[in-house]
Write a protein that binds this DNA or RNA. Structure first.
Length: 475
RNA sequence: GGCGGCAUAGCCAAGUGGGAAGGCAGAGGACUGCAAAUCCUUUAUCCUCGGUUCAAAUCCGAGUGCCGCCUCCA
């Protein structure tokens, strides 16, 4: 089975063939660290890390890089508001980033380069462009001259002559072309600054990504990803400056995720309709938020609503229940070696779902279909668990593995498997109560049985009677 | 003005020529001492009109509606 990826550059699904053997270099535009990140920001962080998980599953050696933009207008503004330095702001929100990323079970990148740690690299890069004649300087600002790069617009399919000048852009009289962009920005008073051949200043926005991606992944690398709003001008400009300097293809595959909307509007700081992960995680488990973000294909728009979150919560509960139930059974260890018709049927379902899952992921990371296989298998498994008296250990193990490998490792949904491992003391107490209730039930003393159940409920324990005996879980 | 996306059940969401996946919610039922968990049943003129085709949710044309990029933005 071959992996197909939609490439923004060609606007088609292409076979994925890495530049060098089975090694994959991947760069995802990371956050500007001046605030908690919101659920819209979370989408690319999460989905492209799932891409990485899947590539690893496919035995690729992936080098995954994501940056922190730790110096720009917003960081400076925040520093002034808080009365601390810009680097303290960055430090704080990098820490907060990791807390929220961990909550969503977003795996760590291999490198987290920061703009301010690469100033010399950035200066060298700009000097290279200067030597090749792509730049001009006006009052200490260094600009990239877009018209000198013949492929400008190839990613966003914009034609320089056709872009309406001034549609929404404020004209900077000093620019030769309105789409020329700043590589190096002269420092204003009281702003953080670094020395450079063009005077004291700081890097422009686009340059850091070009510099740091090529530094860690080479002049040409495989995958560059980010939100679709970055296509123009950010990624277009990255291509321009990188390919102008090296004369080589910058990134082979460009992946962009669709927006996350809220009330059918884009979630953005300027509209003030943002919802941070920090806020949301007060109410929902990280795996529920994850489930929600994976419930639509990554290139489709996805609308946030409370109702939707509740749907994801319910869905996760169904899956969690299955995992509970499987583990309960597994701990009992009362299996049959017999391979009945029902067992064979279920085995076939597992194999079918496995195949379907992989096909879905191979087709441009179709996570909604991948998720659906988790549910289809859950239903078949529940039917088996209810009906079949001769439960087959091999199959139960295979199903547990399916959820571990696909649900947990690839999709990153963490199931809550350890239903029966709270503190030992309590566990003992619970089991004694259950025994007492069993006895009462045997004697058809429903009143006592129900009293015990109520007591357990107060302890946060839910009782479920099954043909294998009473199982319990903590919620 | 230039570029691009979307329209499938009450809700979410797959599906790009030949059986309309999956989930959530609702209703009814089964199981249970009662529950819980689970299962079963039930819901779609695929935005409209026209065209191509033996065959269209899927391709083509027109229309309607919604959204995004071209300003910092994931």
């Amino acid at each position: 089975m071959s992996l197909k990826i939609y490439n923004t550059l060609s606007r088609t699904k292409e076979d994925f063939i890495p530049l060098k053997g089975n090694q994959v270099g991947m760069y995802v535009c990371g956050p500007t660290v001046y605030n908690f990140f919101h659920i819209g920001n979370a989408r690319p962080f999460l989905i492209f890390e799932v891409v990485r998980r899947y590539l690893k599953y496919k035995k690729y050696k992936v080098k995954y890089v994501t940056n922190f933009t730790d110096i720009d207008d917003k960081v400076i503004k925040k520093a002034n508001e808080m009365g601390i330095t810009f680097s303290e702001v960055a430090k704080k929100y990098i820490k907060e980033y990791f807390q929220d990323a961990d909550c969503l079970n977003i795996g760590r990148a291999d490198f987290y380069p920061r703009a301010t740690e690469h100033i010399p690299d950035i200066i060298r890069f700009i000097q290279g462009l200067e030597e090749k004649g792509y730049t001009y300087v006006v009052d200490g600002d260094v600009f990239f001259e877009v018209s000198k790069f013949k492929d400008y617009g190839k990613l966003s399919r914009q034609n320089l002559d056709d872009i309406q000048i001034g549609a929404r852009i404020e004209l900077d009289e000093r620019k030769k072309n309105p789409y020329d962009f700043v590589l190096w920005k002269k420092a204003k008073e009281n702003e953080p600054k670094w020395d450079s051949p063009w005077g004291a200043g700081r890097p422009g926005w686009h340059i850091e990504c070009s510099v740091m991606s090529t530094k860690y992944l080479g002049e040409s690398f495989d995958i560059h990803a980010g939100g679709e709003d970055l296509i123009f001008p950010h990624h277009e400009n990255e291509i321009a400056q990188s390919e102008a300097l090296t004369g080589k293809i910058f990134a082979k595959y460009w992946l962009h995720n669709g927006y996350l909307n809220i009330d059918d509007k884009k979630m953005s700081k300027s509209l003030g309709n943002i919802l941070t992960i920090r806020e949301l995680s007060q109410k929902y488990d990280g795996s529920v938020i994850r489930h929600f973000l994976l419930s639509a294909h990554y290139r489709s728009p996805l609308n946030y609503s409370l109702y939707q979150m509740e749907q994801s919560k319910q869905g996760m509960e169904t899956l969690n229940n299955l995992i509970y139930n499987l583990n309960f059974l597994y701990e009992r260890n009362e299996f049959s070696k017999e391979m009945t018709i029902e067992s064979k049927k279920l085995l076939k379902t597992v194999n079918d779902m496995e195949k379907k899952f992989l096909q879905a992921m191979d087709d441009d990371f179709n996570t909604p279909i991948a998720l659906s296989t988790l549910y289809s298998l859950a239903k078949e498994t529940n039917i088996y668990l209810n009906k079949e008296k001769n439960k087959n250990k091999e199959i139960i193990e295979k199903i547990i593995q399916f959820y571990e490998q696909f649900g947990n490792k690839i999709l990153g949904l963490i199931f809550k498997p350890n239903l029966t491992s709270p503190e030992q003391v309590q566990k003992k107490e619970i089991e004694e109560l259950i025994k007492a209730r069993e006895l009462a039930r045997k004697n058809r003393d429903w009143q006592t049985a129900d009293q015990i159940r109520d007591k357990l409920n107060e302890m946060g324990i839910i009782i479920e009677d099954t043909i294998e005996g009473t199982r319990w879980k903590k919620y």
